[in-house]
């Protein structure tokens, strides 16, 4: 797994993808920071992550859309799948590499906590719970994006599928209230209030594990139908 993780992480840094993801996120996050702090004089660090979750919904595919579809299109999938490495280690390696990029992005957002700390007294505990919840949401998003990427060799289709499902998860509960437990982004609302809800944490973790498993199954299944 470590070999795949290292290679994937390096690929994110050697190609523009990693920089586009981090750059886009920080740019939009900064715009929201500027608007909320200077126009509305709100000094909460955690509230910024409501906007952060919205940004994440739209930019996660930048990180995930190429994960398996590019390998499949270029034929490098053959190199990985004919090596003695297990499919599980391949999937986990790729997943954790994307998670590492996400972790770096989140760490960069912490500079705004420093700025706010200079002007006011934001709570570090609430900030950490928010960051934790946000990371869990990001992992769930990455896992689904990875699953979508394993379904097709076309990166655009993987991207559209990922954003489409995220938007559906966001808005469908408004139309069908029964679908509320499936809305990952709405679940995040509790974390910026300083509440670490077990239900939400378990849902995020379960959703992530499910998507990782589905990706493994898709790749395993393709061996017999390829």
């Amino acid at each position: 797994m470590l070999a795949i993780l290292k290679k994937e992480f390096k690929s994110y840094l050697l190609s523009p993808i990693g920089y586009i993801f981090v750059g886009l996120f920080i740019l939009m996050f900064s715009i929201f920071f500027m608007v909320t702090k200077f126009n509305y004089s709100v000094l909460n660090f955690e509230y910024l992550f409501y906007n952060g979750a919205t940004i994440l919904t739209f930019i996660t595919p930048v990180l995930t859309m190429r994960m398996f579809s590019e390998e499949r299109k270029n034929g490098t999938e053959q190199l990985i799948l004919t090596s003695p490495r297990s499919i599980t280690s391949v999937v986990l390696g790729k997943f954790f590499a994307a998670a590492l990029i996400m972790l770096i992005t989140e760490a960069l957002t912490f500079m705004y906590f420093g700025i706010l700390k200079y002007f006011g007294d934001p709570s570090i505990m609430v900030a950490l719970s928010t960051l934790g919840g946000f990371f869990l949401l990001a992992l769930a998003y990455i896992s689904f994006g990875m699953f979508a990427s394993s379904l097709t060799e076309n990166q655009i289709i993987a991207c559209v599928l990922t954003i489409g499902v995220f938007i559906a998860m966001w808005f469908l509960p408004n139309l069908v209230p029964a679908l509320a437990p499936f809305s990952l982004i709405n679940m995040f609302d509790k974390f910026p209030s300083g509440v670490i809800s077990i239900t939400e944490v378990i849902t995020y973790i379960t959703f992530t594990i499910l998507c990782v498993l589905l990706t493994i199954i898709v790749l395993q299944r393709r061996k017999s139908v390829k």
Partner: peptide, 11 residues
């Protein structure tokens, strides 16, 4: 194994 079309990681 050397697959057909020599797939490589170009980065």
């Amino acid at each position: 194994y050397m697959p057909e079309g020599t797939p490589l990681y170009y980065d």
